[in-house]
Design a protein around this nucleic acid. Structure first.
Lengths: 190, 190
DNA sequence: TGGTGTTGTAGTAATAATTCGACTTTAACC
DNA sequence: GGTTAAAGTCGAATTATTACTACAACACCA
């Protein structure tokens, strides 16, 4: 509705990613506002796929995922902006303007974080995944498969308490709060 | 490799769903073997998308998800077969043969289950989701967002123990064993 | 060569989650 | 209207998980 209110704007809608791709084949667009909880299509890959079809399109990702966790992978994948679904109309308008003016839009926190990561990259290790030890990664993977602390302990011969310690470390390092977030995080940062 | 061993077979590979779709635009294929853990593209939607491009293609879904939980959605979406990634070469060959001969391939357990569901459908309710009460669905959704039993209890004014009871009921009804499976299940059976 | 940080490991106490049984309410069906 | 099944609720007992602490092993580096 906000977009349609813009004079001379032609707005198209697609109910899922496949339909969006079909539209992208037929018309050249200036801006794509994309909901990453769409039924079809995977998250970061969608940005790349769209870029492949239309290299110059502006992409504003709109998502209900927690920003501080998930904005970065999208921006890195080539999105021009990332806005939370819970944002106000004003924020949305501002995001659209930014993007249309060739700027990257994201919340200050996210931009800061991005800045830090880009400049902190002392050559290589910029992914928080790299900061996980081998064992932490192993346990993280088992966690995302749905195994319980106890099961993992049995599996790799550790006390449940040790597994739990690893788990907290992993959560802390990646900044996630529960297994769902961990799973999404690992999916996005494959 | 198994497919390439077939005389006269022309085998194409795609590293992700987008690339697969591109190939499907350029050539007509007899059989598509598709890995549903591909980086791009969502699960059940991929089957539908492929069918849209090539209505007569035979689709064999290959996945590491637990069969009894996840085969059905794919078959319902129009796949011609579902095989586990852990299957033996012989099983795989058999699956391919079945599918090429116009038969549906799935493990006996899955077929049975499918049979039951089709004939048990006393008119309408064939989705296990329908067997969840409104409150169970509400709690299931909150669970897939990563909320803890306690948090949910607070949120909807129930004792943690009641929430936990709902949780077990949900798990039991859907046949899942942990939150990860619940999430995947709900994703697939949107 | 000693300080400092990271990883790997658990025990213990506190907290959270599950199971189970009991009970009430609602719905459904001869 | 009585009977039964399902849904909804919780408390108490049990079990699982976490938070906190501690400590050994190793690496790094100054």
């Amino acid at each position: 509705m906000l977009l349609e209110a813009i004079p001379d704007a032609k707005v198209f809608k697609a109910a899922d990613f496949i339909k969006a791709l079909n539209l992208l084949e037929k018309h050249i667009f200036e801006l794509l506002v994309m909901d990453i909880n769409l039924p079809h299509g995977d998250k970061v890959g969608m940005v790349e796929a769209v870029r492949m079809k239309q290299p110059n399109i502006l992409i504003l990702v709109c998502s209900s995922y927690e920003e501080h966790l998930y904005a970065l992978p999208f921006l890195k994948a080539g999105a021009n902006g990332y806005i939370s679904k819970t944002a106000s109309s004003d924020e949305f308008k501002s995001a659209v303007e930014h993007v249309l003016n060739g700027k990257i839009y994201a919340s200050p926190a996210v931009l800061n974080n991005m800045f830090e990561i880009l400049f902190n990259a002392k050559g290589n290790d910029n992914s928080p995944l790299d900061t996980l030890s081998a064992k932490e990664i192993e346990i993280a993977k088992l966690l995302t498969k749905g195994f319980s602390t106890k099961q993992i302990g049995k599996h790799i011969n550790l006390s449940a308490s040790s597994v739990s310690t690893y788990k907290s470390k992993i959560f802390e390092k990646l900044g996630v709060n529960n297994i769902i977030e961990l799973t999404t995080y690992l999916e996005l940062n494959s």
